[in-house]
C-alpha cells in the first residue's frame, strides 16, 4: 500500500509553514492532519491570518 501523500501549506501573510505530515502536536494537531480537516475558524498560529491564507507549496 502506498504511504499517504501529505502536503505543505504556507501562510501568505507571514510565511509560516503547515506541514500535514508533522501536524502541530503542541497545538493539539496530530501528525497526518490535512489542512482541509482543520476547523474553518483555525488561524495561522504565527500571525493569526485566516485558514484561507494558506496556499499549497510547490515541491
Amino acid at each position: 500500500m502506498n504511504a499517504p501523500v501529505y502536503r505543505k501549506w504556507q501562510c501568505i501573510a507571514c510565511g509560516e509553514i503547515f506541514d500535514e505530515a508533522l501536524g502541530s502536536p503542541a497545538d493539539g494537531i496530530p501528525p497526518g492532519t490535512r489542512l482541509e480537516d482543520l476547523p474553518d475558524d483555525w488561524l495561522c498560529p504565527n500571525c493569526g491570518a485566516l485558514k484561507a491564507s494558506f496556499i499549497l507549496m510547490e515541491d
Partner: peptide, 20 residues
C-alpha cells in the same frame, strides 16, 4: 519552549516582515 508562541515579532497583518 516548543513551540515558543511569543509575539515579539508582533501578530496580525503588521507582523514583522523581517522575522525570517
Amino acid at each position: 519552549r516548543t513551540p515558543n508562541r511569543h509575539i515579539g515579532f508582533g501578530y496580525g497583518a503588521h507582523i514583522c516582515v523581517g522575522q525570517h
